[in-house]
């Protein structure tokens, strides 16, 4: 029984990280056809900023706030400069463009921080492990889950209970008609990139706090996971993103528990293989609605 709870926590922790990632990615995708290959770099940049600040002795709460704000601003800047000219372009074009953006963002990080892994010093309380009734609850997992709940909850409230959020949803669904109501597409873009960037900022901290070391090339892993999560869940809707992220987390954790040691090295291959198998069964994703081809 305790093993079950343990696994459940693992799944929730890993899954909610992926869910947040997928959510940030999907938010932008819903207002313009951009599946952002450079999304992982936003996490990396957030982590690097955190590293610099932590090494300079800045207190943790201030580091958190600064990283989130920085990521939001970076996202808006990149959105404005690199993606806004492609507003009406098809998804494929934007995917390739974002690949170009990733190259540039990575290059700048390489120049500033170099190739070698840098350590992100994590506050000690995160390494604590609680023991409740025989179950090991690492504080890091708890923090991740709680953070994810707050972010997802907050996003839900904003999108469904505020005028601003309703306008974003309207613009995501029908941008031209939203203009007829007086909603400025430019402002919507800024808002969406900012929120997406802020989420990336948060996930970057969660991610690299777990991993411990940051390099400019560490962006591929989160980008992959985010991509797979949104495809698994179903492109283009927030619910799909969350479901996809949790499902991916579940697959990963369960596989690592079930696989014999000899096969553990192949877990990445098996995870993606399973995803592809699921997509065979449901080509539009677990929650996906079959729209265009």
């Amino acid at each position: 029984m305790t093993i079950v709870i343990q696994r459940l926590l693992d799944v929730l922790s890993v899954g909610s990280t992926y869910a947040l990632l997928a959510l940030g990615l999907t938010l932008v995708y819903s207002v313009m056809n951009l599946i952002n290959f450079a999304y992982g770099m936003m996490l990396v940049w957030s982590a690097f900023v955190a590293m610099v600040l932590v090494n300079a002795g800045v207190p943790t709460p201030l580091v958190l706030v600064t990283c989130v704000v920085f990521s939001a601003l970076l996202s808006v800047a990149v959105g404005r400069v690199a993606f806004r000219p492609f507003l009406t372009a098809p998804p494929v074009t934007l995917l390739i463009t974002s690949f170009g953006v990733e190259l540039v963002l990575q290059y700048v990080a390489l120049v500033i921080f170099g190739e070698n892994p840098r350590i992100l010093k994590v506050p000690t309380y995160l390494s604590q492990v609680y023991h409740v009734g025989g179950v090991r609850i690492p504080n890091s997992e708890l923090t991740t889950i709680v953070t994810a709940l707050i972010v997802v909850g907050g996003l839900y409230l904003v999108l469904n209970r505020t005028r601003f959020g309703i306008r974003i949803r309207a613009a995501a669904e029908q941008p031209e008609i939203a203009r007829l109501m007086g909603i400025s597409p430019g402002l919507i873009l800024i808002a969406v990139f900012a929120i997406s960037g802020a989420i990336a900022g948060v996930v970057g901290l969660l991610w690299f706090a777990q991993v411990g070391a940051i390099t400019p090339r560490s962006d591929l892993d989160p980008t992959f996971k985010a991509f797979v999560a949104i495809v698994l869940g179903g492109l283009g809707n927030a619910r799909g993103a969350v479901v996809g992220g949790l499902a991916l987390g579940a697959i990963e954790v369960l596989l690592s528990a079930v696989l014999p040691d000899a096969a553990l090295g192949y877990s990445d291959a098996i995870v993606f293989g399973s995803v592809i198998a699921i997509l065979l069964w449901r080509p539009t994703g677990l929650v996906g609605v079959s729209t265009s081809l």
Partner: peptide
């Protein structure tokens, strides 16, 4: 051109954006 994923009231609220 209604927003299909929004409720009637939400549609009306969006109409008041300006």
């Amino acid at each position: 051109g209604l927003f299909a994923t929004l409720s009637i009231e939400e549609n009306l609220l969006v109409g008041a954006s300006a």
